[in-house]
């Protein structure tokens, strides 16, 4: 795991540099939003990474409920935490875009509202994890992880379910310049690799934490 991180860290640094170079030097300036459109590369890539992170949480939550292995619970929690970080980025960068594009920081539009609900649900996931004791914590948070994931397709298809003029409706054919499309694909790939690195780092931390908890419990039992 440590070796993997040592290889991936320089790789992600290079990819981040390249992403910024592509965003500012290679990608054309979009005609309607001009420079502000460059927020899109990070905003949309972060949103896609949120889907991935909560998807990983969903898969490992199911796996935990089936196999009852602690490592699955730790991986699920790590993915949810990183998903929450990316979701925070989406919710913070979105209003900056919105202020320029729609002249308002926030509007109760379908996708914005469903994304906020998604964020709140995963906040609830961590509140629950911290409130319960070890065994209950794993089972209940796995169940909540599965329930919370239902909101992901709702966020993705929100523009289809509810009429909205702000985010483009799914299936809308947008004419995107090749430089913009290629740059976005590259940034998305970078974010996915970043997610993997953060997942490994967070998983290691959580594993150390659970090891510490186990030793501490053993010590307390010996003393008592």
């Amino acid at each position: 795991m440590g070796k993997l991180i040592k290889i991936l860290l320089p790789l992600i640094a290079i990819l981040l540099f390249l992403s910024i170079y592509l965003i500012f030097s290679y990608a054309d300036v979009e005609k309607s939003m001009l420079e502000v459109q460059k927020i899109f590369y990070l905003h949309v890539s972060a949103a896609m990474t949120v889907y991935l992170a909560f998807g990983v949480n969903f898969i490992f939550s199911i796996k935990y409920l089936v196999k009852r292995k602690s490592n699955d619970d730790l991986l699920a929690a790590s993915a949810a935490e990183i998903g929450l970080v990316f979701c925070t980025i989406v919710l913070l960068s979105g209003p900056i875009w919105a202020k320029y594009a729609w002249n308002t920081w926030w509007t109760w539009e379908a996708r914005l509202t469903s994304t906020l609900v998604l964020w709140l649900m995963y906040i609830g996931y961590f509140i629950l994890r911290n409130a319960l004791l070890a065994d209950n914590r794993k089972t209940f948070s796995a169940v909540l992880g599965i329930i919370a994931f239902i909101n992901v397709p709702i966020v993705h298809y929100a523009t289809m379910f509810w009429e909205t003029k702000l985010h483009p409706e799914r299936g809308t054919k947008l004419e995107v310049l090749p430089t913009i499309r290629n740059t976005w694909m590259f940034v998305l790939l970078t974010f996915i690799i970043l997610f993997v690195i953060l997942l490994v780092l967070q998983y290691q931390t959580k594993k150390t934490e659970s090891r510490y908890e186990a030793i501490r419990r053993k010590h307390l039992q010996e003393f008592s």
Binding site: E35, V36, K38, I39, I89, L92, I96, K99
Partner: peptide
């Protein structure tokens, strides 16, 4: 426009 752009990138970096 650049103010919005820099603000967004700074917020992301900060997070």
């Amino acid at each position: 426009r650049l103010k919005y752009l820099v603000a967004a990138y700074l917020v992301i970096w900060l997070v």
